[in-house]
Amino acid sequence: MTMTAQTASLATPVSKSLRRKRIRGSSIAVLVFLAMWAAFVSIPLYVVIVTSFKTMDQVALGQVFALPTEWTFEPWRKAWSEVCAGMTCEGVSHGFWVSMKILFPSLLISIGISSVTGYALALWKIRWAGTFLFILFLCAFVPFQIIMIPLVVLISSLGIFGTIWAVAIVHSVLAMPLLTLIFRNFYKDVPEELINAAIMDCGSFWRIFFEIILPMSANIMIVVLILMITTVWNDYLIGLVFGGVGTQPMTVILANTVITSFGEVQYNVDMAAALLTAIPPLIVYFAVGKFFVQGITAGAIKG
């Protein structure tokens, strides 16, 4: 009431002209610098996109930045279904479906194990939890090469070497330490009282997990999903080493197509194949970029 009365009485027109926002010279310099970097970052993407729509005749002219004189989808079609990777000429489409088939079991296994482990370590009193977390922390930084050969031996002895399951299991194993740490750091902020109340009410480890903790985990699940999708999709080495003929993921097919191709090089097809491979993670990035940033920073800053 007071306020309305007061403002009403003060609603005399403001005679003073409203000042304009000043743009300083330093602001312009900063924006120019940022724009230059933006160019550096976006030029490769631009070049690849225009190249993939050019005919090979135009590519041969060597004008990388020129727009296609004649837009053609032929390179994309060839890249998807015809291009040769080594001996087989099935395009990258086969690799795309293999990558998809690898992706889902990898996500399921890694997130399943890591979330339960993170939950147990964060919220249930286990005396050696600290030690185990420290070991996981160290494991998260172990270079893959050091455990690669024994894993080959191990996977072979399980009789699944060269299958999609081999690739998915190795992905899950490799991601487990990092994901566990991320989950654990998320769950340790769950108020202790909530868990104590839940233990008093039902007490079951699994029921608390599925009925209380899991429904609270939507945010961290998205972060972890994005982290895992990009990691698994973009991986090359695991797919190369553990995948067999016909079970190699898209990146491996792409590398074989571009790097070890015979005969006349079709740059426009190569670029279309590269784009096809890059599109799924880019879609994820542009769709949920905010979580992507959280995901990579969660991956970077732990402890």
Binding site: V14, K16, L18, R19, K21
Partner: peptide, 9 residues
Amino acid sequence: GLQEVTGGS
């Protein structure tokens, strides 16, 4: 001077 005025002095 940490925030600019829109009008006045």
